[in-house]
Design a protein around this nucleic acid. Structure first.
Lengths: 271, 271
DNA sequence: AAGTGGTCTAGACCACAAA
DNA sequence: TTGTGGTCTAGACCACTTG
């Protein structure tokens, strides 16, 4: 009889060592035996404890890092992570009027709620500004209904208290290329459009997806390559409904959450 | 002078070999020189070409896998991935009435649009059903306003055409524990509530975030541990507004996208 | 049977952070 | 300076897929 396979035990005997180690540590963390903030033994000692090479042990620890269970600090040690402190970006449905920048505002409010001392507001810094190329330019071109050779691309990062929270890429018609010069004055790209140019904006649509951080986003946000990011993209338009820009924001998935509240009426059935 | 550091070249000399290799292959893929579907040379040959050990080469390839650039098939080879075929789950704002299960429906429609032949509808299979424990049970308890010892947990996976698309976890009052027996008949958990129990449901709120796949989700969805997943959770309630269940869905982030269309009126300013 | 990726060892040296 | 994690080698054997 073939009785060996098809067992659903998570730490079976056919399971590789690094996976056994990772699940064992994971379970200890979930159970609270390894409390948040605790430093794990160094990799050499852990490897000895589990009877494997440091390289194998490391494979397990890196997997835990990607699950958000531990934080590895080079030259210092590996620490059990605390449950993430979620920033909730709330939008009511139907939407309330007159928000300045829902994302930036939510990060501001969140900082205010958990600090008695005054905190600095979110600031948007320009990383690069130039012509749009690559596959994403074609996508933006489609969303905006403009040929991609007329598009300008603006890359920024939103910063608060010295930490980089959100990577943003904007695509818009080259006639607006000057916004880049107004961002410093108005703190945020959106305000550079609305206040700097006097151009009222509204959503046409917003969307949510998730990706692993590529090399650029990983560097911008200070996370390991492949970290799960929440992507929020969408098109904003002027009062007459003509698209102005397509924006694609990337946030660390474990520390931000977009919430839609259905306040006014009940919406039948879903799962 | 110290001129070596602080260059922003992506393939500088201080960069580890595996990272240089990964960025080089990544750039070739982005530029289309390595077209989707193409099989890369085997790891031994690639390692020789880059002058590194197979282990080092492998570190680069695995990083590309996490970025969704390549697909590694054991015993077969490593292939450049095609741009993902996104399933768009669209909700209009304000919402339209009478959807049965927006998520499942979107996957059905998507399959219909790209296949001349009839396709099977999404089906929901029960993975486990039992009492609720762990940190997520406490969260569910808070969302529902019920003590966690009165909660029942139901884990399912949505399947279509033999592929597992969405991992779901439901928490609800133990009085509804019987839904598990109605799911097979009604295909979907939501329909087991609405049709089986005659209980109309509506959203209270929905939220979006992102996480790396943990061991269970990775197995359920057939993806590597740590893969970026889109999380859509929320609370549904009955007609009188009392919460019925909290649900937490996990989808592969690269193949699903939630879209909110603001059809009726413009919503002022955002970014 | 042949070819592919998956795991692992034993050891080495390097880069970084804190004392 | 010490201790931590980060990278890399050269080789071995195993597991899976396909013919």
């Amino acid at each position: 009889m073939n009785e060996r396979r098809s067992e659903h035990v998570r730490t079976g005997n056919g399971t590789p060592a690094y996976r056994r180690i990772a699940t064992e540590l994971w379970d200890e963390i979930q159970a609270g035996q390894l409390a948040p903030g605790v430093r794990l033994p160094n990799e050499g000692d852990l490897a000895a404890r589990f009877g494997v090479t440091r390289l194998t042990l490391r494979q397990a620890v890196i997997e835990l890092q990607r699950l958000g269970a531990v934080e590895i600090r080079r030259g210092v040690g590996t620490f059990v992570m605390a449950p993430p402190d979620l920033v909730e970006i709330v939008a009511s449905v139907p939407p309330a009027r007159q928000e300045s920048d829902a994302t930036a505002d939510a990060f501001d409010e969140h900082a205010l709620r958990r600090s008695a001392r005054p905190v600095r507001a979110v600031d948007e810094l320009i990383l690069s500004s130039g012509t749009a190329t690559g596959p994403l330019a074609d996508e933006a071109s489609g969303h905006l209904g403009m040929p991609s050779d007329q598009l300008h691309r603006l890359d920024t990062v939103m910063v608060r208290d010295g930490r980089r929270w959100i990577a943003n890429s904007y695509w818009f018609h080259a006639r607006w290329a000057g916004v880049a010069d107004l961002v410093a004055e108005h703190s945020l790209v959106v305000r550079a459009f609305t206040d700097g140019y006097g151009l009222p904006l509204g959503y046409l649509w917003r969307a949510f997806s998730a990706i692993g951080a590529d090399f650029d986003d990983a560097e911008t946000l200070g996370v390991p390559t492949g970290t799960a990011l929440l992507v929020r993209d969408g098109v904003s338009a002027g009062v007459t409904g003509e698209p102005v820009f397509y924006v694609r924001r990337r946030l660390r998935g474990d520390e931000a959450k977009f919430v839609l509240r259905y306040d006014t009426e009940r919406v039948p059935v879903e799962g």
